[in-house]
């Protein structure tokens, strides 16, 4: 069977979505904190671009065999400027929109993994 990259890709996206959900939770929790700047996670395309193809290692000592730890950079969301006298840049509506977006992407992600998993199982089940 050809090594398939989909599961890794899907788990990377699921992880990215969870990190983004955590960032949004932070924004919403701090919606009334004076001086708080809203944050967001860098787009998934950027994460994908950074994730390089690594050689398959059959031995611990092989070059580049270290498991790549996915890291997602959170940065200040500079698209919104403070509209409140408290210098807080959180807009509850847009945060909730983002949260809904995440839920839909996550649902799509798990649905695809499920379908793929079923396909993989077909070759195992008698």
């Amino acid at each position: 069977m050809q090594p398939v990259n989909l599961f890794k890709l899907a788990s990377l996206q699921a992880e990215w979505l969870s990190v983004r959900q955590a960032a949004i939770a932070g924004n919403i929790a701090n919606a009334n904190t004076p001086g708080y700047r809203a944050v967001d996670v860098e787009p998934f395309e950027k994460v994908l671009a950074r994730t390089s193809v690594s050689l398959t290692a059959t031995n611990e000592g092989h070059f580049g065999s270290r498991a790549q730890e996915a890291s997602f950079k959170t940065k200040e969301d500079d698209r919104t400027t403070a509209i409140l006298p408290s210098d807080n840049t959180v807009v509850l509506e847009s945060e909730l929109m983002k949260s809904g977006e995440i839920a839909r992407s996550f649902e799509l992600n798990t649905a695809i993994v499920k379908a793929f998993h079923r396909m993989a199982l077909m070759s195992v089940k008698v």
């Binding site: 949004i24 939770a25 919403i28 929790a29 919606a31 909730l96 996550f106």
Partner: peptide
């Protein structure tokens, strides 16, 4: 604000 936080909890639980 309380409602928004509750919404986040629901969402995370769904995920």
């Amino acid at each position: 604000s309380y409602q928004a936080n509750l919404q986040v909890i629901k969402q995370a639980r769904n995920l």
